[in-house]
Design a protein around this nucleic acid. Structure first.
Lengths: 216, 216
DNA sequence: TTTTATCTACTGGTTTCCCGGTATTTTTGA
DNA sequence: TCAAAAATACCGGGAAACCAGTAGATAAAA
């Protein structure tokens, strides 16, 4: 963790140039903060991080190439001392908690004020978990269906889930993936178990609610 | 419509301070553009518009107080010559078309580059409809499910659909509704037919896409 | 009042799903 | 390199879903 009297090296990862510009402008006021760079793609930032010190990352969790979730985990793996602050417009509790699970030190919705932003930065750098005002409310007021935590699926399971949501039957999927229908059945069974549901109807609903299938 | 050699008076309505800051920074480069003000609430802007000339508004259609849709219509009613450019992250065709219907001269997703932004501003001021690149693609490539019209369900069918989405099986539903399971089967069959799908998985997906079951 | 839509119910049959186990191989992480 | 996780595969059996067709009862609209 960087000391507060030291210069803080900050990076921005966001696919919105406007947002990057806004953050830069707001943070330029702070003499302690040095903006090392801004990136519109996760991969570019990872390349940068390989060769440069970064104390804090403002990370949009909705990126075009990688999922911000995965990126967050990758960042903490490569550079555990880098503090990640998630920045997003998502106001769903499950998503917020998920990103924290993946190593982020806080979560800000994009409508934060500049003072709020700076406060959160400081808190995060002190090693605390930082939330913007709106996020705090979301955290403390959970919805019913959010009590069950989001099951973590394997790659294959995600794939099967996707295919099931497209109406594909077990034999069809087996043929498409070149595996035994019995294997598919096992995956299905595990999906039902993980989501704690009895049948596909419930499965799809649960997956939709957790935004694990988009449908478009 | 303001002349191009004249100074352009621009306003920003967005509840994200970061975005406002970013837009200001990007537009500060342009000497022709004078930023009259920025607003985080629709009402504030309407008050401003009452007493000031505004040539162009960059309007976030997702605002906390008013719907951006309504605000757009209000703006055009009060000041028909003011060009409204919608600014949003929504990528649904229906929403884009709806805002145009309400008098906007264009639609930009927030991940536009600065050059794209300026181009769109100029186009809009010339009286043309301006879209950012991504939006153009959305307009020209409508999603599959937008073609098939929403099937009209009978009262009973809606009820069955709801129960199916809750994971209820045919015999369970039959008991709950005090009818023969064979009757339920018929309703199910009709639902599959109306939605033009093969099984429950597809049925639920279709229903969700058409927002016919909420699940919450 | 007569048509039309909806809800109801049946026969008989095929396919798919779901449940309970178990177990080998491959991949991955510590 | 060793253990855990994931992907693969099997058995047997019961339940539920889906298909194709028909049809009476009732309620609403023309």
């Amino acid at each position: 963790m960087s000391l507060m009297n030291d210069n803080i090296v900050l990076a921005i990862v966001d696919d919105h140039p406007i947002v990057i510009e806004g953050l830069k402008t707001l943070l330029k006021e702070e003499p302690q903060i040095a903006i090392a760079g801004s990136f519109t793609r996760g991969k570019d930032f990872m390349d940068f991080l390989q060769h440069n010190r970064v104390d804090l990352v403002l990370l949009d969790i909705m990126l075009p190439d990688t999922s911000g979730m995965d990126l967050c985990r990758d960042i903490k793996k490569l550079s555990p001392d880098t503090v990640v602050l998630a920045l997003s417009n998502h106001t769903e509790r499950s998503i917020i908690l998920q990103i924290l699970q993946n190593g982020a030190s806080g979560y800000l919705v994009k409508n934060v004020s500049s003072t709020e932003l700076l406060n959160c930065l400081k808190e995060a750098l002190k090693g605390e978990i930082a939330f913007s005002k709106e996020v705090k409310e979301i955290i403390t007021r959970p919805a019913q269906h959010e009590f069950k935590q989001v099951p973590t699926l394997t790659k294959r399971e995600k794939q099967i889930l996707q295919l099931v949501s497209q109406g594909k039957t077990t034999p069809v999927m087996a043929q498409e993936l070149n595996v035994s229908p019995l294997t598919i059945e096992t995956h299905r069974r595990n999906l039902l178990q993980k989501f704690d549901v009895k049948n596909v109807a419930e499965l799809i609903m649960a997956a939709v609610q957790h935004k694990m299938i988009t449908g478009y």
